[in-house]
Simulated scan of single mutants.
Amino acid sequence: MWQEISRIGRKLVQSGLVESHFGNISVRMGDRMLITRSGSALDELTSDKIVEVEVQGTCALDVIASSETIVHRAIYNSTSAFAIVHAHCPYAVTMSLLQGEGCITPLDSEGRYFLGDIPIVPGGIGSAELAENLAKALYCHKAAIVYGHGTFSIGRVLDEAYVLTTQVEHSCRIRYLHDLMRK
């Protein structure tokens, strides 16, 4: 499974959805999850850069797991997701800063069809507040944007979460360019 996480990490970096050392990826496996280690370069993931931790509660390996482990736990415990991709998509982050609270409504037909409104949620990196806010948002949505921070997308498999991440960024880019041209 670490190879799949590595493949998605490379795709995220190659497509410009994240800088190498930002973002994280996880996969749920029963009552455990595999998650990228804190500070790992997503385009250079190896088996030793993936950590297996508990889904229900903390464990000793949390100290080396992603700083967003608490957030991934909350999402898995509140949704039917089996995969999570967190990226720092530039247009999504920009649109969250411009929009503020609420949602971004995609203008493109694919975004409207596949995503609907994209919630913008507040909360500090790796905080209990962020974990709670994202768990609530992703209960009803496939993706959300953390204000000034990045996207979280969920799926039944990693590829689905990755595609939703690309869709959020595409819809935010279209929205940004549209709004720019209307000024």
Score class of each variant (00 low, 15 high):
Gln3Gly: 07
Gln3Met: 15
Glu4Val: 12
Ile8Leu: 00
Arg10Gln: 11
Leu12Asp: 07
Leu12Asn: 08
Gln14Asn: 15
Gly16Val: 04
Leu17Glu: 01
Val18Met: 06
Val18Glu: 07
Phe22Gln: 12
Gly23Ile: 00
Ile25His: 05
Ile25Lys: 06
Arg28Gly: 01
Met29Ala: 11
Gly30Ile: 03
Ile35His: 01
Leu45Pro: 02
Thr46Asp: 13
Val51Arg: 02
Val51Ala: 00
Glu52Val: 13
Gln56Ala: 12
Cys59Met: 09
Cys59Tyr: 04
Leu61Asp: 14
Val63Arg: 13
Val63Met: 13
Ile64Cys: 08
Ala65Ser: 08
Ser66Ala: 11
Ser67Arg: 14
Thr69Cys: 07
Ala74His: 06
Ile75Arg: 03
Ile75His: 07
Asn77Tyr: 11
Thr79Gly: 11
Ala81Cys: 06
Ala83Asn: 03
Ala83Asp: 01
His86Cys: 05
His86Ser: 08
Ala87Asn: 08
Ala87Thr: 07
His88Ser: 04
Cys89Arg: 02
Ala92Phe: 04
Ala92Gln: 02
Ala92Thr: 05
Leu97Tyr: 09
Gln99Met: 05
Glu101Ser: 11
Gly102Pro: 04
Cys103Asp: 15
Ile104His: 07
Thr105Asn: 05
Leu107Met: 11
Asp108Glu: 01
Ser109Gln: 15
Glu110Thr: 10
Glu110His: 12
Gly111Lys: 02
Phe114Ile: 10
Leu115His: 06
Gly116Trp: 06
Asp117His: 14
Ile118Arg: 10
Ile118Met: 09
Ile120Ala: 10
Val121Thr: 14
Val121Met: 08
Ile125Pro: 15
Ser127Lys: 00
Leu130Cys: 10
Ala131Gly: 09
Ala131Lys: 02
Glu132Leu: 07
Leu134Ala: 08
Ala135Lys: 01
Lys136Thr: 11
Ala137His: 02
Leu138Asp: 10
Tyr139Met: 14
Cys140Trp: 14
Cys140Lys: 15
His141Glu: 08
His141Phe: 09
Lys142Gln: 15
Ala143Lys: 06
Ala144Asp: 06
Val146Thr: 14
Val146Pro: 05
Val146Cys: 09
Tyr147Asp: 06
Gly148Ala: 06
His149Glu: 10
Thr151Pro: 03
Ser153His: 02
Arg156Asp: 15
Arg156Asn: 14
Leu158Lys: 01
Leu158Val: 07
Tyr162Pro: 11
Thr165Arg: 00
Gln167Phe: 12
Val168Arg: 10
Cys172Leu: 08
Arg173Thr: 02
Ile174Tyr: 01
Ile174Val: 11
Leu180Tyr: 06
Lys183Ile: 13
